[in-house]
């Protein structure tokens, strides 16, 4: 197995995730795209862990999974709050940051 086949898979997933973050309007779908990005990073970490014969990558992959779980929890909390206040979770409607 080549190192690159895993890394390319991760790169493709990453780019799909980026596309999703940009293109999606629904906040829940945006969060899902972020999960794609995080998973591609995990694949990278584990590939390099195998390549270098160390276990550090595993530790960080686990940490990323934990952080992702926390992120989803808080993210969905935010989405719920936004929904309650605005009756929509379309991120296009949230333009309070307009300059």
């Amino acid at each position: 197995m080549f190192v690159n086949q895993f890394l390319f898979l991760a790169a493709v997933l990453f780019c799909i995730g980026v596309y999703g973050v940009i293109a999606r309007k629904n906040a829940v779908l945006m969060l899902m795209s972020i999960e794609l990005i995080l998973n591609s990073v995990n694949i990278n970490l584990l590939t390099f862990a195998m390549r270098n014969g160390s276990t550090d990558g595993h530790v960080f992959a686990l940490y990323i999974i934990a952080v992702a779980a926390a992120e989803v929890g808080v993210g969905l909390g935010l989405v719920l709050l936004v929904y309650r206040n605005k009756k929509t979770i379309s991120v296009d409607e949230l333009s309070e940051m307009r300059g």
Binding site: A11, T47, G53
Partner: peptide, 23 residues
């Protein structure tokens, strides 16, 4: 945007790892 990113990463990966195999 996604395509530019993919191209950038693909270039970097092929240059850095080429035909390297996993142990």
């Amino acid at each position: 945007v996604a395509l530019v990113m993919l191209v950038a990463m693909g270039l970097a990966l092929t240059r850095s790892f080429g035909d390297e195999k996993l142990p």
